[in-house]
């Protein structure tokens, strides 16, 4: 996952891109003949110093290689703190990436 996090005026703005096929059931059926081959990210979380700052449950209808932005309050965090983001997909694969807040 590519992540950028910037602290400005007490707000941390995050831009992230997860690399994932995000295959819907329809596409799975069309391309592989089996709906059960569908696979997509089902949950994305973000934490800083153990505190949850993003808790997002997702479906197959996010774009391929989904890009998303979110903000969170940065009063209790500072530049240099590490933002850790993890996604889990339908097949149970998981990927964790991190970046320092700038």
């Amino acid at each position: 996952m590519k992540i950028k996090a910037k602290l400005k005026k007490g707000i941390v703005s995050v831009k992230a891109m997860a690399k994932h096929e995000m295959m819907t059931y329809d596409v799975a059926e069309k391309k592989t003949g089996d709906r059960n081959n569908a696979n997509y990210i089902t949950h994305i979380s973000g934490t800083v110093n153990g505190e949850t700052v993003l808790d997002m449950t997702t479906s197959q209808f996010l774009s391929k290689n989904p890009i998303f932005k979110f903000d969170f309050k940065g009063d209790t965090f500072k530049a240099g703190d590490e933002l850790v983001m993890t996604w889990v997909d339908l097949k149970g694969n998981t990927e964790t990436s991190s970046t320092d807040i700038k």
Binding site: D55, L62, P66, F70
Partner: peptide
């Protein structure tokens, strides 16, 4: 999205 005390609630996504 489940929000908490840190959430600013300003999001951008790309969807199908």
């Amino acid at each position: 999205i489940s929000t908490n005390k840190y959430s600013v609630n300003d999001y951008s996504i790309k969807m199908k």
